[in-house]
Amino acid sequence: MPEICRFFGIIIVMYYNDHAPPHFHARYGSRKAAIDIETLGIIDGELTPRALGLVTERAARHREELRADWDLAPRHEILLPIAPLE
């Protein structure tokens, strides 16, 4: 599970050979959620409202990078990190 980004205690990862739709996983404390890259909606799990807001804001700004990593993951290539904060 390669880590793509870490900010404010939130960890963003993507798994190799994961299932569709294209998504990433966010962890914050004991909570976890899978987030759809296109809709930014939660597919599975839950985050606090504040953490979810931070995650979706960052994902919206870095959607193209997340799509690129999703394309790399099935080939087991090194995923590109996303800068922690601008």
Results as ranks from 00 to 15, higher is better:
48 T>S: 15
2 P>G: 11
20 A>Y: 04
49 P>F: 07
54 L>A: 14
75 R>C: 01
13 V>D: 02
53 G>A: 13
19 H>S: 12
28 Y>I: 13
84 P>K: 03
75 R>E: 00
7 F>W: 12
20 A>H: 08
17 N>K: 08
19 H>W: 10
78 I>Q: 05
3 E>S: 13
27 R>I: 03
49 P>I: 00
16 Y>M: 06
77 E>F: 02
54 L>C: 12
36 D>Y: 11
11 I>C: 10
11 I>L: 15
80 L>T: 15
75 R>T: 00
34 A>N: 11
4 I>C: 07
54 L>R: 14
35 I>L: 11
19 H>K: 11
11 I>R: 13
16 Y>V: 04
40 L>S: 09
85 L>C: 08
85 L>H: 09
43 I>K: 06
33 A>N: 04
20 A>I: 00
23 H>C: 05
60 A>Y: 05
52 L>R: 06
69 D>H: 03
37 I>H: 11
37 I>R: 02
43 I>M: 08
42 I>P: 06
10 I>F: 13
51 A>M: 02
46 E>M: 07
65 E>F: 12
11 I>P: 02
23 H>A: 06
14 M>S: 03
18 D>P: 04
71 D>W: 00
36 D>H: 14
41 G>A: 09
17 N>D: 10
84 P>D: 12
15 Y>D: 14
12 I>E: 03
19 H>C: 06
56 T>K: 12
2 P>S: 12
44 D>P: 02
22 P>N: 06
30 S>R: 04
58 R>M: 08
53 G>S: 10
48 T>E: 14
11 I>A: 09
18 D>N: 15
82 I>N: 06
14 M>P: 11
56 T>L: 02
37 I>S: 10
14 M>Q: 10
47 L>W: 14
36 D>R: 08
66 L>A: 10
86 E>T: 01
31 R>A: 11
75 R>W: 00
11 I>T: 14
22 P>Q: 11
50 R>M: 09
15 Y>F: 14
58 R>D: 01
53 G>Y: 01
74 P>W: 01
49 P>M: 04
2 P>M: 02
54 L>H: 01
4 I>F: 05
9 G>D: 05
78 I>V: 14
2 P>Q: 04
75 R>P: 00
41 G>F: 07
7 F>G: 08
37 I>E: 03
3 E>N: 12
31 R>E: 12
70 W>T: 00
51 A>P: 05
37 I>M: 11
3 E>Y: 03
19 H>E: 04
58 R>A: 06
6 R>L: 03
74 P>N: 01
44 D>S: 13
33 A>C: 07
3 E>M: 14
56 T>R: 14
39 T>L: 13
34 A>C: 08
77 E>H: 04
40 L>C: 10
46 E>D: 14
39 T>I: 09
12 I>Y: 01
46 E>T: 15
36 D>Q: 05
37 I>G: 10
52 L>S: 01
